[in-house]
């Protein structure tokens, strides 16, 4: 937190997050740096429920609780989506998203390069968003490509993914 001068006329400092974010960047990422944690995540994710979406949901819930206890959150994490999102890559994306959900309060997903996306991948992003909301975290899809928006529209989830208003601005 920024230093506070008692005589200053600046009460709440709206720029304090800049220093906090810089400090967070210097801390190692728990999810990446701890192989034991990865193993626990894998168990939670893949050992219990037969339904994939339930597995995903349950995994996110459990992991987030663990992370809260450790108090090891970074403010914002960024992920760049691959051009092709398919069933072949969804498990890898799942792991990636799980790791950042575990370690961050806000996840920014850059979807600008997406040229093809299947239902599994979009379903995964939707579950991520819903899980994040329950945990009072934020997931933002930045720069969605035309194709990404088209697929989200086709599936009727563009509003839920909040890419329906992407055209109105970039922020």
């Amino acid at each position: 937190m920024a230093d506070k001068n008692e005589n200053s006329l600046i009460g709440y400092d709206p720029l304090a997050w800049m220093h906090e974010q810089a400090e967070e960047k210097t801390k190692p990422s728990v999810a990446v740096a701890c192989p034991e944690a990865d193993a626990i995540l894998d168990e939670q994710l893949y050992a219990e429920s037969p339904a994939e979406q339930n597995i995903a949901d349950a995994g996110w819930q459990d992991v987030a609780v663990d992370a809260t206890e450790e108090g090891a959150f970074a403010d914002t994490a960024s992920i760049v989506l691959e051009p092709v999102l398919s069933i072949q890559t969804v498990a890898q994306l799942h792991e990636q998203l799980l790791a950042v959900l575990n370690s961050s309060n806000k996840i920014e997903i850059d979807a600008s390069a997406v040229t093809s996306a299947d239902t599994a991948s979009l379903q995964l992003l939707l579950v991520l968003k819903r899980t994040a909301i329950k945990q009072q975290k934020e997931v933002v899809i930045d720069f969605p490509s035309d194709k990404f928006i088209e697929v989200a529209n086709l599936l009727g989830i563009s509003e839920m993914l909040e890419v329906d208003r992407a055209a109105a601005g970039f922020f």
Partner: peptide, 18 residues
């Protein structure tokens, strides 16, 4: 203006990243 700058810096950082 400080409040506005905070918002602007968030925007700029997003663009730098993207």
């Amino acid at each position: 203006a400080l409040q506005g700058l905070s918002h602007l810096m968030g925007t700029i950082k997003k663009f730098e990243s993207a």
